[in-house]
């Protein structure tokens, strides 16, 4: 299974790099869709159907919205010239990337093997959720009972996103 996941992750990286370098914005968006739909297959392989359903629906809707926006505006990318300030930015980003990779390798050498966990709360949740909440789907039982604040936060993020879009694109009071 790790081989399949590695091939999928390779496809995702290729799609993301193509999305950055494509001349046409429409093909860039379709290449960005490769990342999302490969993630759906990864979730299914890792036995997380709840996440896979949410990811496939949200990915489709965001792709449709972005394609609608692209077809209404322009398909050409803005031309950016490389001057001295951008060279400084790029070199800073490279240095930061190297530092991040160094600490990531340090941290990853102390982790458990893939698929094994030692979290005490996780085993308590898996053992007692069904008896305490009466919910046959353990994920929903955890999300709406033990982790209620998480769910409220996610709903608030969506509410705030809609509020922000309405504020930026409002009709009245726009000068």
């Amino acid at each position: 299974m790790e081989l399949t996941l590695s091939i999928l992750l390779g496809f995702m990286i290729i799609g993301a790099i193509f999305a950055l370098h494509a001349k046409d914005l429409l093909s860039a968006i379709i290449a960005a869709g490769i990342v999302g739909y490969s993630l759906v297959i990864c979730f299914l392989l890792l036995k997380a159907p709840d996440l896979a359903i949410v990811q496939i629906v949200v990915e489709t809707i965001t792709l449709i919205i972005m394609v609608a926006v692209i077809l209404d505006s322009t398909r050409e990318e803005l031309k950016v010239k490389i001057d001295r300030r951008q060279i400084i930015n790029i070199s800073l980003a490279l240095v930061f990337m190297l530092v991040l990779v160094f600490f990531f390798i340090q941290a990853i050498s102390n982790l458990n093997p893939f698929g094994e966990h030692t979290l005490r709360m996780a085993s308590a949740y898996v053992g007692e959720t069904a008896a305490k909440t009466g919910s046959a789907n353990l994920v929903t039982g955890i999300l709406f009972d033990f982790r209620g604040y998480d769910t409220l936060g996610e709903a608030t993020i969506l509410f705030t996103a809609a509020l922000g879009v309405l504020t930026i694109l409002r009709i009245k009071g726009r000068k």
Binding site: V54, V57, T60, I61, N137, V139, T140, E154
Partner: peptide, 19 residues
């Protein structure tokens, strides 16, 4: 609360029907 899914997935599906 019985099968995979829930409020987030179902809500996105309903929005998809309207869209």
């Amino acid at each position: 609360h019985l099968t995979p899914g829930g409020g987030f997935a179902g809500g996105a599906l309903i929005a998809g029907a309207y869209i």
